[in-house]
Amino acid sequence: MSELKQRLSDEMKAAMRAKAKLRLATIRMMLAELKRIEVDERIELDDARVLATLDKMQKQRRDSIAQYEAAGRDDLADIEKAELLVIKEFLPQPLSEAELAAMVDAAVSNSGAQGMQDMGKVMALVKPQAQGRADMGAISQLVKARLT
């Protein structure tokens, strides 16, 4: 079992003991999504894939928050915000702007990218390093700015 999945399982037990309903429900939701992927693809998830899945769940929560707030449903937005906080606990520390810029610069020089046609090469180098630590949309914007 991956280290991150084990940590999620341990935190679920702790949430049960503490009777933290929202935290428990969110952790169960994360574990259920990981289990669904394992069953569908018949694989055992490693930490990198778990991080990618949690990152996707984080993005889904951000999108839901924006939609609920636009619709004036602050009650539902608050639930999504609470879930987002729990998900963030299991993701690595976010990268600072300087770290992100340095990572993009290194990827551009390592890939030998000359223009926008090489954006895929740069993103392929940056994505594994930044997974779960930065918004891929922001990274994409940074790469586009650097390549133009």
Rank of each mutant, 00 (worst) to 15 (best):
K35I: 06
I65T: 07
R49H: 08
K21P: 08
R49Y: 02
D40Y: 09
Q58K: 14
M57R: 13
I43K: 09
A48K: 11
L45D: 07
A14T: 12
I37P: 06
M16F: 11
T26P: 08
K56C: 02
A66R: 12
D46R: 09
G72L: 05
Q67E: 13
Y68Q: 11
Q60H: 14
R62Y: 03
E69V: 07
I37S: 10
D46L: 01
E38N: 06
E38A: 02
E11L: 05
R17W: 04
A32H: 13
I65L: 02
A18R: 15
T53N: 00
D55Q: 11
M30T: 09
S64I: 10
R61F: 13
A70Y: 04
V50C: 10
A48M: 07
G72C: 05
M30K: 07
D63E: 15
L51S: 03
V50M: 06
D55T: 11
R62N: 06
S9W: 04
A71S: 11
A32F: 08
Q58D: 12
R28K: 14
I43C: 02
E11H: 13
Q58S: 14
D63S: 13
D63C: 02
V50T: 05
L22A: 14
Q58Y: 12
L24E: 14
A71N: 08
M57S: 13
D63V: 08
K5T: 02
A48D: 14
L34M: 09
S9H: 03
R73P: 03
A20T: 04
L4R: 11
Q58L: 13
Q6R: 13
L34A: 10
A20R: 11
G72E: 02
R17C: 01
S64P: 01
D47V: 11
D63R: 11
T53P: 00
K19M: 12
D46V: 05
K5C: 05
L24V: 04
R73D: 14
K19A: 09
L24H: 15
I65F: 06
L34F: 03
K5P: 07
E44H: 08
E41V: 01
M57L: 15
R36V: 02
A15D: 05
R7I: 00
K35A: 11
A18I: 12
L24T: 06
A25N: 12
Q60N: 15
R36W: 03
M12R: 15
K13T: 15
R73G: 04
